[in-house]
């Protein structure tokens, strides 16, 4: 399926909450067979460039959609326009 988003970034310094967020995002992407790139970014420069002050954060094509919390799978689906 062709997604509306091509790059999903999960931003966080590498704590448990960030990995949990990455897992939620990966699960949703895999489940929907989306052809988009999911990447984890631990660099503070990237967080600053996107204006992220609270992690974990998720950005779609460079736009922050979630910050400072672990979203539920349902919310990620909705943000991706899947539900």
């Amino acid at each position: 399926m062709t997604p509306s988003v091509s790059v999903i970034e999960v931003l966080g310094p590498g704590c448990a909450r960030c990995f949990e967020t990455l897992r939620v995002v990966r699960d949703v992407v895999d489940e929907a067979h989306l052809q988009c790139l999911v990447q984890k970014d631990e660099s503070v420069e990237r967080m600053a460039a996107l204006g992220v002050m609270r992690t974990p954060a998720i950005a779609f094509d460079g736009k922050v959609v979630v910050s400072g919390r672990i979203p539920k799978a349902q919310e990620v689906r909705r943000l991706l326009g899947l539900a």
Partner: peptide, 17 residues
């Protein structure tokens, strides 16, 4: 302010900047 210690670094940059 809700804040987890993992966010200390980005928050620090955001404030100082």
């Amino acid at each position: 302010t809700p804040f987890c210690s993992c966010s200390a670094v980005p928050l620090f940059i955001g404030f100082v900047e």
